[in-house]
Computed example of a mutant assay.
Amino acid sequence: MSPKRVNSGRKKAVEAEITRDHILVSASTLFSTKGFDATSLREIAQLADVTHSTITHHFGAKQDIWYAISDRNIADYQQQLAMSLVQVIKNEHEPLAVFKTAVEVLIDTLLRHPQLVRLISMEHDINSERAIYLDDKLNQTHHMVSSLFDQAKAVSPRLQPFNADTFLVALLGLISAPALFPILQKTLTQTDITDANFNPHYKGLIINILFGE
């Protein structure tokens, strides 16, 4: 195959990936604000600035786009979690440090992708097949993190009031508040939750509340 054909093939592959990404980002915005059922392929196409046929070419049905969004976000979280745990276990064997790293990865992921929080919330509100799919995907990780929690609790007085489930509820409640209640910004006078400095500051507050640091 000539170099020209190879370069042309690579260019088309890159362009296709960019198009897919635009579609996923646009669909994620609509699904997390209007809900899956209220969003049409036409609206996704308009926001992504592509044709309806382009969407069906890359994904097929609307349901396939939703699964692609969910899989990509969950895979990102699980990959970051695995990489971070390998690193901390390599350098630090203290159970509390290992568990705290897992918590920090979850905080970073959900603060970085607030639409994922809203997406999950909307699906559970209607208890759809998509909610069951998310449960199955996320429960695999939750069971592993719960084991890390139990090990950390054995050496941390701060964690004694919690069990693995109540800790998760408290953690998700703290993380999700800015994403689920953007109207808060209209009532706040000292904090801009849309500012780039908000996420690291808020992450520190969550860690302090739950771990007493």
Score class of each variant (00 low, 15 high):
S2T: 13
P3T: 03
P3H: 04
P3F: 09
K4H: 13
G9Q: 13
R10K: 14
K11L: 12
K12P: 04
A13W: 08
L24C: 10
A27D: 06
L30T: 04
S32P: 07
F36S: 06
T39V: 07
E43Q: 15
I44V: 15
S53A: 13
T54H: 07
T54M: 12
I55E: 03
H57E: 07
H58Q: 07
F59T: 06
G60V: 07
G60H: 04
G60N: 00
A61K: 14
Q63D: 12
I65C: 01
W66E: 10
Y67S: 03
A68S: 12
I69M: 03
I69S: 06
S70V: 15
S70N: 11
R72Y: 01
R72W: 03
Q79V: 01
L81S: 06
M83C: 02
V86W: 00
K90L: 11
H93L: 13
H93K: 14
A97F: 06
V98L: 12
K100R: 15
K100W: 01
A102V: 00
E104V: 12
D108L: 06
L110D: 04
L111F: 12
R112W: 01
P114N: 10
V117Q: 04
V117S: 06
L119P: 04
S121A: 15
S121I: 06
M122N: 09
E123A: 11
D125E: 14
E129G: 15
I132R: 14
I132D: 14
D135P: 03
D136V: 12
D136I: 13
N139P: 01
T141M: 05
H142I: 08
H142C: 03
H143Y: 14
V145Q: 05
S146I: 04
S147F: 07
D150N: 15
D150P: 02
A152N: 01
K153L: 00
K153W: 05
V155R: 06
S156M: 03
P157Q: 11
Q160G: 00
N163C: 10
A164D: 09
T166I: 05
T166E: 00
F167K: 04
L168H: 08
V169H: 14
L171P: 04
L172W: 01
L174P: 04
L174S: 10
A177N: 12
A177H: 12
L180H: 05
F181Y: 14
F181C: 12
P182H: 01
I183P: 02
L188D: 12
D192Y: 09
I193H: 03
D195C: 00
N199G: 01
Y202S: 06
Y202L: 10
L205T: 12
I207A: 07
I207D: 02
I209N: 07
L210A: 02
F211L: 08
E213Y: 03
E213A: 10
